[in-house]
Nucleic acid binder design. Structure first.
Length: 581
RNA sequence: GAGCCUGUAGCGCAGCCUGGAUAGCGCGGCAGCCUCCUAAGCUGUAGGUCGGGGGUUCGAAUCCCCCCAGGCUCGCCA
């Protein structure tokens, strides 16, 4: 049997073989509007040379090609419509190939075999002085989802978190805790507790400007290795990480490697010296070490201050060296679009310094998240906290669940609310192309109906329900139907809605490949919406369990294939595929 | 002033990279569908000079140029 990957190539190849005897052999195939066929080729390009009307050329070629196709072949029919030649797959053959492939490959359907490529993907990069907010949620979801997409298509993906756990922000929280915290332990989620001290500092700072100096002094003592300052710093840093881990867990995020700025911040000298020796860096009049990139069409970038203290670029250059120890083929940085220019500078610097993977560095950039009040600013408290938002989604979903089923016990309501609430949030973020800004209105943005995560989940749950019904009513496990599939004739799937579903299932591997190639989870989201909608329309119009004989068997198998692909896709998005909802 | 991103129906978005057949989807509006496998669903209907103008092409939402609007950024913030 053909593997999932090969199905697309198999059918495409069949059309290309047909065309090899015509003047169209070099023309690229198109995927046309479904009502015209499965693959198409326009003949405009032949019109001049042949001195004929395009429609006439299409007609004659189609007639010639028609001798080579038939219901028992992969290509069932060929027809000229205007200036196009349209090819249509054999419905029964395609259905059989697709359904059997999905049934045998299960959760692997759509994935590709392991390649040799190693991708290092850095995402999240939090500052450990406060809890995460909605902006981090977008980063975290985009990062982990792209990581899953790449892994599904065969890459070895190393997920890295670059933790900015030192600097003025951290020092401020530490100073506030030292001054007013009296060594107390967190009475709440620990990252929120640390964030409270940061906020307290900012508040007091408005009244007393000398606090800024205290924070600076604290940072200086930290850099000098003062044991007391370091002890408090470590305690608070670990609280924050502990809190983050809970947030990450709920979002489905994980990391293979954690880089802490505190571990490497003082290792700049060798690489800066190397850059100076190579002429990549120069010292300006004030003594700053600068990368002059103007010859490369980019502005200059300071990489080390005159007093020897580091800037963000310093740390990133050191980090790049650490990453090189993993010998990645590709290095991806998932960071907001406000840093677009910075990453062009950084990648150019890495290239000039001679990093082997510098040419394969990508900035996975994404638009900012705005609230009705404007841009989120931690300092001003105009943020949507990540944990609060997830709790809020959970609560909204719980309400929706209770509204529909008043006989569920509390535990089941909670279980479903978590699944559905997070699905709504994750899907909402991921379905929007990363390059766009998101204007988030807590009251209006997230819904449970229409183009949403719960809509896709619902289609999945319905199919599970149908399969259960079959088991109960006909006393047969779905596995038994699958056994009959080998000799089942799929020409019974003759309805338009069935043919459309088969074609959507067929295109899943290609869609997944494109989503991974483009680093675009939104492509997968759109596909899942289409597939869920395709099933809902089919479900509305045709009976499954109540159909008879071969039709019922074929529909059960088709539904089960849709269920499998929905589950696979949702899994890649980090969204639960519930059996009931 | 310069660079990057965005501009598609009242609102939110897909399609643009790789040009092709009447520009799709969701929300909202209006009109319908639960004696039938989950109505978080389905059907119908109204709604678009694809920001504007040039150009390339047999053909442009898609490629090129100019302009307009919004966002981000432009050596020692992260």
């Amino acid at each position: 049997m053909a593997s999932a990957m090969d199905l697309g190539a198999l059918y495409r190849g069949a059309v290309e073989r047909l065309l090899s005897g015509t003047p169209l052999r070099a023309v690229q195939l198109e995927v046309p509007d479904p009502r015209f066929g499965d693959l198409a080729v326009p003949v405009f390009s032949l019109a001049k040379g042949m001195r004929k009307e395009p429609a006439q050329i299409a007609k004659e070629l189609a007639a010639e090609l028609a001798k080579e196709v038939g219901a028992d072949r992969l290509i069932g029919s060929v027809a000229a419509i205007g200036p196009y030649i349209n090819f249509t797959f054999s419905d029964a053959k395609l259905a059989a190939d697709v359904i059997r492939t999905v049934a045998s490959q299960k959760e692997c359907y759509g994935t590709a075999p392991a390649s040799k490529r190693k991708v290092l993907l850095e995402y999240s990069a939090p500052n450990t002085n406060k809890p995460q907010h909605l902006g981090h949620i977008r980063n975290n979801l985009l990062g982990i989802t792209v990581a899953r997409l790449l892994a599904a298509r065969g890459d070895t993906v190393v997920k890295a978190n670059w933790v900015n756990d030192r600097g003025m922000g951290v020092a401020k929280a530490n100073v506030a805790y030292l001054k007013w915290g009296k060594g107390a332990a967190p009475g709440k989620k620990p990252d929120h507790y640390v964030g409270d001290w940061y906020v307290r500092f900012q508040k007091e700072l408005a009244k007393d400007a000398t606090l800024e100096d205290e924070a600076r002094a604290n940072l200086k003592r930290w850099e000098d290795g003062d044991t007391q300052v370091r002890a408090v710093w470590k305690k608070m840093r670990d609280w924050v990480i502990e809190g983050y881990k809970e947030t990450y867990g709920r979002l489905g995020c994980s990391f293979d490697i954690w880089y802490f700025e505190s571990d490497i911040w003082d290792q700049a000298k060798p690489i800066i010296d190397e850059g100076l020796a190579k002429g990549v860096f120069i010292k300006d009049d004030a003594g700053n070490v600068v990368a002059d990139l103007e010859g490369h069409g980019l502005p200059k970038k300071v990489v080390l201050r005159a007093d020897g203290t580091s800037v963000y670029a310093t740390a990133d250059i050191i980090l790049a060296k650490k990453k090189a120890e993993l010998s990645p083929d590709v290095s991806i940085y998932c960071v907001g679009s406000e840093h677009d220019l910075y990453f062009r500078q950084l990648f150019k610097i890495l290239e000039l310094l001679g990093f082997s993977y510098a040419k394969n560095c990508h900035h996975l950039s994404y638009g900012l998240v705005y609230l009705p009040e404007g841009k989120m600013k931690s300092r001003e408290g105009t943020v949507v906290d990540a944990d609060d938002l997830m709790d809020g989604m959970h609560a909204l979903a719980a309400e929706e669940v209770r509204k529909r089923y008043d006989d569920l016990d509390g535990k089941e309501v909670e279980r479903r609310a978590e699944s559905i609430g997070l699905a709504a949030l994750k899907f909402y973020i991921l379905k929007i192309d990363a390059s766009r800004d998101i204007h988030f209105d807590p009251k209006e943005s997230i819904s449970f109906e229409g183009e949403t995560g719960p809509y896709v989940q619902y289609a999945h749950a319905r199919i599970c329900s149908v399969l259960r019904q079959h088991e109960e009513q006909n006393g047969e496990r779905s596995g038994a139907v699958a056994k009959r599939a080998a000799k089942l004739s799929f020409e019974v799937l003759a309805e338009d809605e069935e043919k459309r579903l088969v074609r959507m299932l067929y295109s899943y591997p290609e869609t997944l490949a494109k989503a991974a190639l483009d680093l675009k989870p939104s492509t997968l989201c759109r596909y899942l919406l289409d597939l869920a909608q395709g099933f809902s329309i089919f479900y509305q119009k045709h009976r499954i369990v109540q159909a008879e004989g071969a039709v019922r068997d074929a529909r059960l198998l088709l539904a089960d294939s849709v269920r499998q692909v929905l589950a696979n896709g949702l899994g890649l998005l980090g969204i639960d595929a519930p059996e009931r909802m």
